[in-house]
Amino acid sequence: MASSRQNTGKTTTKAGTASKSKTPTKKATTAKKQSTSASAKKKRVGQRSSRQEKSQSSRLWLMYPTRLITKPIIWQLGRKFDMVTNVRQASVTGEIGIVCLELEGNRTQIDEAIKWLERQGIRVEPVEINVLDA
C-alpha cells in the first residue's frame, strides 16, 4: 500500500484524528490510544451482541481520499463502535492520508467498523497489504 512508508519528510501528522496538535510530528510513530469515553451517550453499533465475544486486535492500513483527510474519522470510529484505536504510523500529504491503525475489540465490532470505514470511502487493507498475490 502507499503506506506511511511513503513518508517523504513532508508534513506528517495523525490523520483524521480529533486531536488538533499545532506541531505536526515528522514521522508519527506515536502510539496514542484514542478510546472513547465510556459515558458516551450515542448508540454504539454491535455493542450488545458482541460484548461477550473475545477481544482481539486487528492491524490495518487506512487510506483516506483527499476529501476525508481533515475528518476525525478515527475519533468517530472509536465513539461509534466503542473500540480502542491505536495509531502506529501515519502520513498525510495534500492528496492522500495513510494511517496504520491497531483496532482492539471483538470480532463483530471489528467487522462492522471495517464496513463502516469502507462506507465512508476509506480503503482498508490488512497490515500485510496484498496478501492475495498474483
Binding site: 500500500m1 502507499a2 511513503q6 492522500i96 480503503r123 497489504i129 496484498n130 498474483a134
Partner: peptide, 26 residues
C-alpha cells in the same frame, strides 16, 4: 511522486493486477 494511489485493476495482465502494491514505495 514518492507515494502511489491505489487503483482498481482492469487489465489482461492478471499476474500484475495488484492495485495496492506492498513494495510500491520501495
Amino acid at each position: 511522486l514518492d507515494f502511489f494511489k491505489p487503483v482498481k485493476p482492469d487489465t489482461i495482465a492478471k499476474s500484475l493486477a495488484i492495485g495496492t502494491p506492498a513494495d510500491g514505495f520501495y
